[in-house]
């Protein structure tokens, strides 16, 4: 589904990603862990098309297409979804408006008709219920005045409505208490499917207790320094990142 080869990225002439290689197949869940400042968020941003990053080398191929050449909305319509670390507040636009606008943009792109208003509401209300959100959220402005947990749940709601193929969760667990984390994890788990892949960028191992990854990669200083199975996350939890980074320096 996604193939990243030797990807190097600069921000303001500073090298942030220094040659990332990653192969992600449909159905897989990849966790990308690493200390602060390792380039985790840069990787999420570059995949979803945020401006301000300069690709200096390498490639990212998504379903056979050059992902990096597409504008952000086309990536989204092609099925790439970024759940933001810091979801943006948009006063004046209701949640339900955004959901409808987003879903219809995808449908139009795929040559489908706009969703019927009644069908849409039924769909949305079912998803809202599954995420244990209050229906009133739908009519509130996007993320405005939401708590941290509500914002993250709202991201998962959007994901559930848009049914993307590649979901990138950027620090979705940070700032969540354990109850909110469980709800978010349940939401993500319910979306697991053989045609869908996940990239979970996280600083904490705790998320992986609730969403079981197939692969764990450690990102440090702009490079993936170690990859493994779920057991790697446990090791990181126990030992921290220090031993790997030191290993990197002396290797």
């Amino acid at each position: 589904m996604l193939s990243i080869k030797d990807l190097t990225v600069n921000v303001n002439d500073k090298k942030i990603l220094k040659g990332i290689n990653l192969e992600i197949k449909a159905g897989e869940i990849h966790a990308i862990m690493g200390p602060n400042g390792s380039g985790k968020s840069t990787l999420s941003h570059i995949l979803s098309g945020k401006s301000g990053y300069e690709v200096t080398g390498g490639s990212a191929t998504y379903q056979g297409k050059d992902l990096l050449a597409m504008p952000p909305e086309i990536r989204a319509r092609e099925g790439v979804f970024l759940a933001f670390q810091y979801p943006v507040e948009i006063p004046g636009v209701s949640n339900v408006y955004l959901l409808k606008a987003a879903l219809n943009a995808v449908r139009k792109y795929n040559g489908d008709d706009e969703v019927d208003a009644m069908d849409f509401l039924t769909l949305v209300k079912a998803k809202v219920k599954a995420l244990e959100m209050d229906e009133k959220f739908l009519y509130r402005a996007v993320n405005e005045g939401f708590s941290g947990g509500e914002k993250k749940r709202n991201e998962i709601l959007q994901m559930a409505i848009l049914e993307p193929k590649l979901c990138i969760l950027d620090e979705t667990d940070s700032g969540l208490d354990i109850d909110a984390l469980k709800i978010v994890a349940d939401g993500v788990n319910s979306l697991r499917s053989p045609d869908r892949a996940f990239i979970m960028v996280t600083h904490y191992q705790r998320l992986l207790d609730y969403i079981k990854p197939d692969f764990v990669h450690v990102l440090a200083h702009g490079q993936i320094i170690k990859s493994g199975g779920p057991e790697l996350a446990l090791e990181l939890e126990e030992k921290g990142y220090g031993w790997l980074e030191e290993g990197q320096v002396t290797a």
């Binding site: 979803s48 098309g49 945020k50 401006s51 504008p71 952000p72 909305e73 990536r75 989204a76 319509r77 979804f81 970024l82 933001f84 979801p87 943006v88 948009i90 955004l98 606008a101 987003a102 879903l103 943009a105 995808v106 792109y109 959007q158 848009l162």
Partner: peptide, 16 residues
């Protein structure tokens, strides 16, 4: 306009 908000909407399939 806040460019972060523009990107947020773009990442939700909406053209610029």
């Amino acid at each position: 306009l806040d460019e972060k908000s523009v990107f947020y909407l773009q990442s939700r399939c909406i053209d610029e």
